[in-house]
Each structure stands twice: as structure tokens, then as C-alpha cells.
């Protein structure tokens, strides 16, 4: 197959035709644009959150004109000879910071009581690209609470409308009952006339949700994720299409949560059924494989935030505490 040459932030890579800029960057492994809505396992996802925007300074060898606007790297396919600027472009870093600002103006910032805190992509994104102070002074958007069933808790105020859960239910379950209602900033993820979501794979919406909008009711308020220990395990699941490969999250000897396994980009490797996720919470239900490795840029891995990748040209204001003299010494953070 013909390989296309693409340069991202000065690093060259050859990828097959049809690869997106984001996938190419992931292959390089450095300067990867953040993706809040794109999910490689979900067809049609991406393009919406705009955090992965990059600048294409040369369209291709054939047509070297730059693209006039920033493009969504998750949905733009590479061309031969394409030159992409991501973190080396100050405009892109500024645009990304503003997208993060937009995502946060109506977010409740209730991380201290949010179950997702610690493994939340929006939190990571906010630390990497967010500003220290908000310029938004108005009342934040709130929604009426809707009960969508016994397993999944919907917190619409935290939602960033990535549409991942809609795609998940559309593509891996056979009856999607939820979608996006209303439009503009009153758009919300909801089930029509407050129906509950009940099907074998509905629990996967919890894993694909980048924020704390969809959380596990059986794990709610039980613990902070960074106090729990992930362990890889599997069982011989009889549900059709379920891989049975999971991560068990232990607190002491107790399994307090079961999730699908996630790769280094925070994406589910294989989807699991609701039986595995919600009903098998005993160690005896599982064949233990061993401790799971957690990406070290997450709070679970290190107990504190630190950028694991090279710092961008425009240094982001990383942490709320980093500038404070008493926090200069990193060792104080680690327990």
C-alpha cells in the first residue's frame, strides 16, 4: 500500500492513506492533540469539541497551499507531503486554550464531588491548556435532573456534548433510546420523555464519557479513583459480543468498580456487557491477570499532575498550585 508522508511539528512519519492527522500524531506519540469527542472505535465521532484543531501549513506536495482555517485533526485525513503545526503554532495553542475556556464556562467545576475526578479528560485538558481564572461572570447553565435507570447516573451540567455516548449506543447496542434534545447551549443528552436506558451494553456510555456526565451508579460516592487499585482480569462471558476483559478497581480486598480496559489514549479497548460491569463484583467471579498500568499523566498514576509530554512552545499555565512557593518541591505532593 502506498504510504503518505506527513510532518507534524517537525516530526516526519509515513502512514497509510485514509489516516487522520490525529491518528498519525498518535503513531508518532509526541505532541498529540487532545481529543474530547473523537473516539477511534466509534464511527462518525469527532470534529465537534474542537480541542484537537491544528494548523495545516502545507496541504500536500501537489497543492502546497495552507488551509485557511484551523482543522479538526481527528477528522482531517493526511495528504502526501502535508505539514501540520500543532504545539509549535502559537495560534493553535491560543485557539485551543480558548476552546478549553469555552468548554469550562458552563461546566460546574464540581471536581471535588465528581466521581470522574482523577480520570477526567476535561480535567487533564484544563490543567494542560486552561487559564487560571475564568472571565465568565454569569450564571452557569444547569439542567433538570433526569433518571435514566438503575445503573447510569446522568449529570447533564457536566456534559460537554461530545456525542460519544450517542454513537456508542447507536453502534454497539441495538436499541438507542437517548440522543441530543434541543439545540445551542440548551442542547442536552437525554432520553425522550425520560425513558430509562436498559440494554446489555448501556454501561459503556460511562467509559466513553470524557467527563463526569455519565457515571456508574453502583460506584457513586464510594471512593476517589486515585485511592483505588486497577487490576486486569477476565471471565468467560456468555453475552454475545462481550469480550469479558475488564479492569477491576480494588479498595482493599473489595472490588468497588468494574470498567472496560482503556488504552493510553483513554479509549476503551473492548466493550463489555452490563453483567460484567455491574453484577460481577467478587474476586471469585474473575480470573486475575495482574495490576493494570495506568497512563502516568493521569492523577491515578502519579497522585499529582505533571505533563508527561514535552512542554509546548507556549507554556500553559499548568497548575493552580505550581506557582506557590510551598509547592515548588514536588516531593511534597507525593503522599
Amino acid at each position: 500500500m502506498d504510504l503518505l508522508k506527513v510532518t507534524i511539528d517537525g516530526i516526519e512519519i509515513e502512514v497509510p492513506a485514509g489516516t487522520t492527522i490525529l491518528e498519525a500524531a498518535r503513531k508518532i506519540g509526541k505532541n498529540v492533540p487532545p481529543a474530547m469527542c473523537y473516539y477511534s472505535k466509534l464511527e462518525g465521532s469527532g470534529g465537534k469539541c474542537r480541542t484537537c484543531i491544528v494548523k495545516v501549513s502545507q496541504g500536500s506536495t501537489k497543492d502546497p497551499r495552507p488551509m485557511p482555517k484551523p482543522v479538526a485533526s481527528c477528522r482531517t485525513q493526511v495528504m502526501d507531503g502535508m505539514v501540520v503545526l500543532n504545539e509549535t503554532s502559537p495560534e493553535i495553542m491560543e485557539a485551543r486554550a480558548s476552546v478549553v475556556e469555552f468548554l469550562l464556562i458552563n461546566h460546574p467545576l464540581d471536581c471535588p464531588i465528581c466521581d470522574q475526578a482523577g480520570e477526567c479528560h476535561l480535567q487533564d485538558l484544563g490543567y494542560a491548556h486552561g487559564k487560571q481564572k475564568t472571565r465568565y461572570e454569569f450564571k452557569r447553565r444547569t439542567f433538570d435532573k433526569i433518571d435514566i435507570g438503575p445503573y447510569v447516573q446522568l449529570h447533564m451540567t457536566r456534559c460537554i456534548l461530545c456525542y460519544r455516548c450517542v454513537f456508542t449506543c447507536d453502534q454497539i447496542t441495538n436499541d438507542r433510546v437517548h440522543g441530543v434534545l434541543n439545540r445551542g447551549d440548551s442542547a442536552e443528552i437525554s432520553t425522550y420523555i425520560e425513558k430509562s436506558i436498559e440494554n446489555d451494553f448501556s454501561g459503556n456510555v460511562i467509559d466513553v464519557c470524557p467527563v463526569g456526565a455519565l457515571t456508574d451508579k453502583t460506584f457513586r460516592f464510594k471512593n476517589r479513583v486515585w485511592f483505588t487499585k486497577p487490576v486486569n482480569a477476565h471471565r468467560n462471558c456468555t453475552t454475545d459480543k462481550c469480550s469479558g476483559k475488564v479492569q477491576l478497581w480494588y479498595k482493599g480486598n473489595e472490588v468497588i468498580r468494574v470498567t472496560a480496559r482503556k488504552d493510553q489514549w483513554g479509549e476503551v479497548e473492548e466493550f463489555i456487557c452490563n453483567t460484567c460491569r455491574f453484577e460481577k463484583k467478587e474476586t471469585t467471579d474473575w480470573v486475575i491477570e495482574g495490576p493494570a498500568k495506568v497512563d502516568n499523566k493521569s492523577v491515578i498514576g502519579q497522585n499529582h499532575y505533571e505533563l508527561s509530554y514535552d512542554k509546548p512552545v507556549v507554556p500553559p499555565k499548568i497548575s493552580l498550585f505550581a506557582d506557590h512557593p510551598s509547592f515548588k518541591d514536588d516531593s511534597k505532593f507525593i503522599n
Binding site: C49, R50, T51, F102, I105, F138, L161, G184, A187
Partner: peptide, 13 residues
């Protein structure tokens, strides 16, 4: 329409 973040949040702001 509320699909992408800058427009959804920015226009209201």
C-alpha cells in the same frame, strides 16, 4: 445548533 463548543458556548457568552 450546539454541536461544536466555541459556537455553542461562545454565542451565549
Amino acid at each position: 445548533c450546539g454541536q461544536c463548543s466555541p459556537c455553542r458556548e461562545g454565542t451565549g457568552w
